[in-house]
């Protein structure tokens, strides 16, 4: 059941690097991460790779396999033919540290810029009451394992390094959507999404949704609804007029 596959792995650092060919044994039922580990144990002891749970739950082993962002632990070898060359590179949107390991601090920086959950000030712990139907939308977004594949594939930053400053990326725009839809959150997030976090940069080409290993409908369920909520606030003259005429207390 085993055969020799042709792997082409990017080796290098933040200055230079190249694709290196390795013939390597593959057994039934294995995933790409197994093969990378086999390379470590046999041919390339210092091949750097980041991984953790090996069960698709932690989102550490993100890489690009044949040009597509994937979790290495969730990419079964049986999805390839025995003769094809399998190219594994680090995520191309982030600075590389070594080999397959990239510096993903961009994402942690962006995470800090999103204002945190703002609970109602007078609500004591234990008194939270929320209906299941009201938390379900945000729960979908909280399935996110922060593998950063969506951040990697999004052309807004992938193809335009200069946009990193002004664009939070799908994962963190989704975080804003998650909090904005939270039934108890009291913060005002919609204008900020557009003005501070770059929601307008998104041109909904859906690559984030395509690569999400958790199958979260990032575009349809988070980004577009958030865009529509922004329209409510910023671009809807009727709503604007209504808010001027019928000033509600607290609105």
């Amino acid at each position: 059941m085993s055969y020799d596959a042709r792997f082409r792995v990017w080796r290098g650092d933040d200055e230079k690097g190249e694709l290196v060919d390795y013939p390597v044994e593959v057994n039934e039922g294995e995933v790409v991460l197994d093969i990378i580990h086999r390379l470590q144990q046999t041919q390339a002891q210092d091949l750097a790779v980041r991984w953790n749970c090996k069960a698709g739950k932690c989102g550490s082993c993100s890489a690009e396999i044949n040009g597509r962002p994937r979790l290495m632990c969730m990419t079964r070898m049986s999805t390839f033919t025995e003769t094809e060359t399998i190219t594994v590179t680090p995520l191309r949107t982030f600075p590389v540290i070594r080999d397959l390991v990239t510096d993903v601090s961009f994402n942690y920086t962006k995470a800090r810029e999103i204002p945190s959950f703002a609970p109602p000030p007078d609500l004591a712990p234990g008194d939270y009451r929320m209906a299941q139907v009201d938390v379900e939308r945000s729960q979908e977004f909280r399935k996110c394992i922060e593998c950063f594949l969506c951040q990697d594939i999004c052309h807004v930053v992938r193809d335009h390094e200069e946009n990193k400053e002004s664009f939070a990326g799908p994962r963190y725009l989704m975080r804003i959507a998650e909090l904005d839809m939270h039934p108890l959150d009291v913060a005002d997030r919609q204008k900020e999404a557009q003005e501070e976090h770059g929601l307008g940069m998104c041109n909904i080409t859906k690559c984030c949704t395509e690569v999400c290993p958790e199958h979260i409908k990032i575009t349809d369920n988070a980004l577009i609804p958030l865009k529509e909520r922004v329209v409510d606030r910023k671009y809807d003259p009727l709503v604007w007029l209504g808010s001027k005429i019928f000033k509600r207390p607290g609105a």
């Binding site: 609970p119 712990p125 209906a131 938390v135």
Partner: peptide, 24 residues
Amino acid sequence: APDRVWELETYGALFDRTPDGRIS
């Protein structure tokens, strides 16, 4: 343990709910 779980809700955790809106 109950206080620690309730505290998580104030941090933003979203547990599954009972029909009356409490943590299932």
